[in-house]
Amino acid sequence: QTVVIGDTTYHLNNPEAAQQIAKELAKKYGLKVVISGNTIKLK
């Protein structure tokens, strides 16, 4: 699972954790979560 935040890319072996982290950050910073395949992007 790949999480992309701005110009930073994180690789996590746990998809659920990756999605949870993405949701928390999106909520905290008012970002939009875009999931395509096994890549999660925060914009």
Rank of each mutant, 00 (worst) to 15 (best):
Q1P: 11
Q1E: 05
Q1K: 10
Q1R: 13
Q1D: 09
Q1A: 14
Q1I: 15
Q1W: 15
Q1V: 15
T2S: 08
T2A: 07
T2Q: 08
T2W: 14
T2H: 09
T2R: 10
T2N: 09
T2Y: 13
T2E: 06
T2L: 12
T2M: 10
V3M: 07
V3P: 01
V3A: 02
V3R: 02
V4R: 09
V4C: 14
I5S: 02
I5W: 11
I5G: 01
I5A: 01
I5Y: 05
I5C: 15
I5V: 07
G6N: 06
G6S: 04
G6T: 02
G6L: 06
D7S: 13
D7K: 14
D7M: 13
T8M: 12
T8S: 07
T8Y: 15
T8I: 14
T9L: 08
T9F: 10
T9M: 10
T9V: 13
T9D: 04
T9K: 11
Y10N: 05
Y10R: 04
Y10P: 02
H11G: 03
H11P: 06
H11T: 07
H11V: 11
H11W: 14
H11E: 08
H11D: 09
L12I: 13
L12S: 03
L12V: 12
L12G: 03
L12Q: 03
L12C: 15
N13D: 14
N13H: 09
N13Q: 12
N13A: 13
N14A: 06
N14Q: 05
N14E: 07
N14F: 10
N14R: 02
N14L: 11
N14H: 07
P15R: 12
P15M: 13
P15F: 14
P15A: 13
E16I: 10
E16R: 10
E16M: 10
E16F: 09
E16A: 10
A17H: 10
A17C: 14
A17N: 06
A17T: 11
A17S: 09
A17R: 10
A18I: 12
A18R: 02
A18G: 02
A18M: 09
A18V: 08
A18K: 01
A18H: 02
A18T: 03
A18Y: 08
A18Q: 02
Q19M: 15
Q19N: 09
Q20R: 14
Q20M: 11
Q20D: 06
Q20S: 08
Q20L: 11
Q20G: 04
Q20V: 07
Q20A: 11
I21F: 15
I21N: 00
I21M: 14
I21T: 04
I21C: 15
I21V: 08
I21Y: 12
A22I: 12
A22W: 07
A22Q: 01
K23P: 00
K23M: 12
K23N: 13
E24T: 10
E24C: 15
E24K: 13
E24V: 13
E24F: 15
E24S: 12
L25S: 00
L25R: 00
L25F: 04
L25T: 00
L25C: 08
L25W: 07
L25Y: 02
A26E: 08
A26K: 06
A26Y: 09
A26G: 03
A26W: 12
A26S: 06
K27H: 07
K28G: 00
K28W: 09
K28N: 02
Y29G: 06
Y29E: 05
Y29K: 04
G30T: 00
G30L: 05
L31H: 06
L31T: 04
L31V: 07
L31G: 02
K32G: 07
K32H: 11
K32M: 13
K32Y: 09
V33M: 13
V34F: 09
V34S: 06
V34P: 00
V34T: 09
V34L: 07
I35N: 03
I35P: 01
I35A: 04
I35D: 01
I35S: 03
S36A: 08
S36W: 07
G37V: 03
G37Y: 02
G37D: 06
G37I: 06
N38T: 08
N38W: 01
N38M: 06
N38S: 09
T39E: 09
T39M: 09
T39H: 04
T39G: 04
T39R: 05
I40V: 05
I40Q: 00
I40K: 00
K41Y: 15
K41I: 15
K41N: 09
K41G: 03
K41F: 15
L42H: 01
L42D: 00
L42N: 01
L42V: 09
K43Q: 13
K43C: 15
